[in-house]
Design a protein around this nucleic acid. Structure first.
Lengths: 225, 225
DNA sequence: ACTACCACACTTGTATGGTAGTATGGAACT
DNA sequence: AGTTCCATACTACCATACAAGTGTGGTAGT
């Protein structure tokens, strides 16, 4: 439920925060890594203050753990937390697509169709990065059309815990086709006001995101709690 | 999705944060109020650092708004945000009580029954404050029994936006009886594995929480966005 | 060899001074 | 009178110094 007014001039704090967050999510800073205000401040050429404030924010999001007078560490991945994040997203997305089946503004529906078209193009170009973005925009548009953008923001925040288990490399090779079909099915379900179909498709759709965690857990058991 | 390791020795930051938060939620600091690092630091007899860090945390939770070089202000109540918080809570609570109807550990069921009994006693004593706590514990126990404590934590965080519109005074006089009956019905539904009954009762149950907002909005329109 | 202890090198927590951007009120000008 | 401009008193942002707790390795004593 966080609303960030993006500063017109990016502050040092935001810079450090963004950088650290991306490093943590990409596992460039693996779980368990010790951080230090001083060290990071040197690395980023800023003072301890913005670094410290970034640490605090990351701690609130559960990405790092601050132990007073002892140190700050990248959080281990908590499988329970990951599962619950998935659970929450599932419930909220299902509820929203049910709403969408009742009524959905036509301009947003148009956006969804345009998005689908671009997905096809990107699949042809094997542009995985763009596909990833389009997937996100697709879901965002769904929430936007239902007037539930704040809910989407909450989901985004929970997603960080899912993202750390989602290795982009692994995703790239498999089943964009399958995902695309589901996206298309859901749009059709909305048009047909078929809430049952929409909901079950969404459920399957979101289940695909859990597979990577198993792989990661076998490969790096010490990343997990 | 935030996890705060409560410090063994309460830090100045936590003290200031807790105090400010409670003042904001109780409307003692009404929406729109201008805050200032310096002023608060004097009021709490600490330096500006812990105050500043509290401001940032409150900003992330959406309770204050920090405008660089201009000031920090208690956020206006955003009706959309309040409605979505209610929406999310409804979806998640309904999903959880459905799970509870499939299976629920007997010791937690015992806790729920004990809670109900204490609710009766508190109603007899007209102990509204305790009833408020018991209501919260009741719902928490539901999530605990389903292994969804992190989800409960998320709900708690969204609740701050609902709480600012829930005037404790107003709540006190009406319908504890009604709420209690719903609590009892839900426990029975869990025992009977009647997901339909449980879900619809929960939905009604949560709808009761919106009424105060209307009153508040008529009385203090300038508190709202 | 083993243990108790202590100095030291870390860590984060707190206090404070300086910087730059913003709002405001009054003076000077039209 | 109305408008423009500027000094001034704010604001949050950042840098830095100091305080206080923690872990560790070496040393002295047994």
């Amino acid at each position: 439920m966080t609303f960030i007014g993006p500063s017109p001039t990016p502050s040092a704090r935001d810079f450090v925060y963004t950088k650290l967050k991306s490093q943590i999510l990409s596992l460039e800073l693996p779980p368990g890594t010790a951080l230090s205000e001083k060290e990071s401040s040197l690395a980023f050429s800023v003072s301890r203050t913005p670094v410290r404030e970034s640490f605090l924010r990351l701690a609130q999001e559960g990405l790092v753990q601050v132990l007073p007078q002892r140190g700050t560490f990248v959080s281990l991945i908590d499988p329970e937390l990951v599962e619950e994040a998935r659970f929450m997203r599932e419930q909220l997305e299902k509820a929203v697509i049910r709403l969408a089946c009742e009524s959905f503004p036509s301009d947003k529906l148009e956006e969804l169709r345009g998005n689908l078209k671009e997905q096809q193009e990107s699949m042809a170009r094997k542009d995985d990065l763009r596909l990833f973005e389009l997937d996100e925009i697709y879901h965002r548009t769904l929430f936007e059309g239902c007037g539930k953008l704040n809910t989407w923001a909450v989901i985004q925040q929970m997603n960080v815990h899912l993202n750390r288990t989602r290795l982009l490399r692994l995703v790239s090779d498999h089943q964009w086709n399958h995902l695309y079909e589901q996206h298309e099915t859901m749009v059709q379900a909305i048009e047909a006001h078929d809430a049952g179909l929409a909901e079950s498709t969404m459920q399957e759709h979101l289940l695909l995101s859990v597979k990577d965690q198993v792989v990661l857990r076998e490969k790096f058991p010490h990343y997990f709690k």
